[in-house]
Design a binder for these strands. Sequence first.
DNA 1: CTGAAAGCGCTTACAG
DNA 2: CTGAAAGCGCTTACAG
Lengths: 352, 352
Amino acid sequence: MTKKIRLLADTSARSDKVGKVPQAVTLAMVARAAGVSASTVSRILNGTAVVSDAKKRAINDAIDQLGFIPNPVARGLAGGRTFSVGVLTQTLDSPFYGAALRGIEESLRGTGYSPLYVSGHWDAVEESRCLHLLRSRRVDGIIVLTGGLSDQALQLCARTLPVVVTGRALKAPGLYSLLFDDFGGGRLATQHLIELGHRQIAFIAGDNAHPDSIKRHAGYRAALEAAGISYDPALVVSGAYTEDSGLEAVENLLAAGQKFTALFAANDQMAVGASLGLYRRSIGVPQHISVIGFDDAQFSAYTHPPLSTIHQPMLELGRLAAQALLQLLAGQKPTAKVPAPRLVARESTRQI
Amino acid sequence: MTKKIRLLADTSARSDKVGKVPQAVTLAMVARAAGVSASTVSRILNGTAVVSDAKKRAINDAIDQLGFIPNPVARGLAGGRTFSVGVLTQTLDSPFYGAALRGIEESLRGTGYSPLYVSGHWDAVEESRCLHLLRSRRVDGIIVLTGGLSDQALQLCARTLPVVVTGRALKAPGLYSLLFDDFGGGRLATQHLIELGHRQIAFIAGDNAHPDSIKRHAGYRAALEAAGISYDPALVVSGAYTEDSGLEAVENLLAAGQKFTALFAANDQMAVGASLGLYRRSIGVPQHISVIGFDDAQFSAYTHPPLSTIHQPMLELGRLAAQALLQLLAGQKPTAKVPAPRLVARESTRQI
DNA sequence: CTGAAAGCGCTTACAG
DNA sequence: CTGAAAGCGCTTACAG
């Protein structure tokens, strides 16, 4: 048997010089080497049927010796499964979503599934184009990391493909959603400031098009009211989740002559931008003003001073999303729950 | 004709309720609707042959009306091309490589090619596993963003697949390499400091396993010597390209009682970490010490003070890499050249 | 310029 | 438990 395998392998090796691509070992070659039919090899590959131990051993030997790797393209065509999962993200180079992508990658590795990333750039039209692309590439399931797609579009998609979506609460067959508690996070950040004795707390909101921004805002307001501090719209300015918008927001606040001893920015990028604005005016953080952000982005532990923030478990979220999709793919019911928001008190906030 | 197409479309729509996946329109359906053979449809799809205008029009009409989208999986199996290009990156969530990924995405969009990202995590074994994965998925070409693969492995790969690699100079058939001038960049950073009057300039080196780190170091040394300043090994400490390592490095420098008025860190992350170390000791940047980084990462414009650095055109590099691969794929000879390093003088450096 | 036919490398009813 | 056969949706020599 070994001899036969050698022969086959050699033949394939020789064909290298003739053909272009080093002709891969095919399932048919394995079948021939193991003395069984292609069907049988396929079955043990997929665990589709019980096969006698003897044949199983022969086949596995042949696979090892020939170095057979099933061609995912062929499997995709024949079996309708491509062993790839689509990941609709907004941008590949966000300091923030990156962690989620890594989490997805971690959960997927070793499962045979590969992620296929597409970026929607916060544009619903673009996102739906991405969804089409993923479907046309015949992914087996899709993970949608937030974005502006309508609930309806997602539900429709879930009718034919398992879908896991983050950032919204949605129930539908074949769809699982993972929602972070932005309201609780916003409240937590504000409570932290209140506990430090602050009562004049400015808020830089995020992009209003994002539901998470609205919820963080609501959390801010709820914490204020629970502490008997009246909500002052003059202390609230809108940003766009970017550093620049945070800088601009704080400048507007200052220019308007608003008094505040603490500042809560709806994400870390805006908190950093705002801090730069304060730095430029020589307003010390936290000596003069306490600043807290939201997200716990990678850079936040290294700002000067290190930024207090609300930790959002993006890595974990990515892991959970992929696990949930894997469960959906296996016909199981996902059970994952997103961890609760957690305060990370560093050095940008202090007792008044 | 229109009527016929309708009929076919309806049939397909009806089959939805029976089958699972909304059965896609196939090439065969288009052929039938247009009254031609599958071969002809395929040919106009691929521009493989000249087809009479009349048929061409009929086929295009049928395609539009039926909403036909060629199945890339089938094309992959039959034609040997999957219209996907592999991108071997090190990590998906680097604030730095992210821009390159976006550049790749930009250059690829609209070309029909999709990127397939895999992460090697700076581990040669892992990277070569990634390469295997990409090949087993039958990508049409590969972009390798730096990493620890051997030149040999890359050249071997390029024998069967177009390869574009960044971060090294390598010549081989089917392979194109894009090299940034790290030496020049290191020299530029150091020159900037020297021009500001600094003569005691500390250097935090990056990971020695990375050639770029070694070259930046050499550039530092060359600039010093060109200015008649002797190279002092005591002013050079090793980091690992992370914030923490930058912080640690500066602490070591300070603990050793080294005197310096300026600091050049081999990347922005270490510069930020080092700045935090200085901040903790109440050493002002740039009042007491000037700091310059390398890379011009996204966050660098927003540190306090904004960080002077050497701009590395990652976005452009990504774009160029993808364009070069596209050229290779089209049988052309790539011509792309990486832009030269550029000084971005912000506020962390000043005249002594 | 265009078709019929074979084939890409698998999977999956269908029959034992 | 296992094979032979058909088929997934395309592409590509091969013949006109």
